[in-house]
Nucleic acid binder design. Structure first.
Lengths: 96, 96
DNA sequence: ACGACGTGCAATCATGGAGTTGCACATCGA
DNA sequence: TCGATGTGCAACTCCATGATTGCACGTCGT
């Protein structure tokens, strides 16, 4: 999942504090710029951030409404998992 | 995560319907017995199933109370994720 | 006692994801 | 204009994990 990675969360959090470029993030994080670029590509693929080119640099920033949507999606998935667990439990305990 | 795998869910579901052994499951599923054994080891490691040896076979079955606990854990993790997303959103939108 | 069945262990393979490195190209600023 | 900075692309490594195969060994039923 797009948010299963710790570094990805870190990046998203920093973008929340201030939109920035891959190179700028690479200066703050212990990983290479390219690694960060790949994370940003994932975040952009799921619509959590958008990018604007400004001169020679590309600035990324979070997308508010998508954050909401993803949050709801996460809750839905979580609910589904617990629902399925409940189902297994009922089966395991032989209740109707 | 222990429940991220589709096959693992499948196995857990089948065990809910009826406790069974790795070999028995291997007859129903399209994967090898050893692959199933590994899934069962994971499920047992997180406490979702327990195993009893009966003669030459080892029977696995789900653990009701642990299913509840895991469900609660999942909800907690989901809630945490959405909370963090909300945090990013607030930061991104510059609200206090 | 013997074959069939179930398990345990170890080696091996394939795949995907995170990360790195090197290089070419574009843009900024002095 | 020229060096510094930022980006894009591609090839590569590393590692976790799902899966397979082969073999030894214990257990069951006849």
């Amino acid at each position: 999942m797009a948010l299963a990675d710790e570094t990805r969360w870190d990046i998203l959090g920093r973008l929340g504090e201030q939109p920035s470029s891959a190179s700028a993030l690479a200066r703050e994080l212990p990983i290479s710029r390219q690694a960060i670029v790949k994370h940003l590509e994932v975040l952009r693929a799921v619509g959590l951030v958008e990018s604007h080119r400004r001169g020679r640099e590309v600035v990324y920033e979070p997308l508010g409404h998508r954050l909401d949507e993803i949050a709801r999606e996460l809750e839905r998935i979580g609910a589904e998992w617990t629902r399925q667990l409940g189902l297994v439990k009922r089966l395991a305990e032989g209740s109707p």
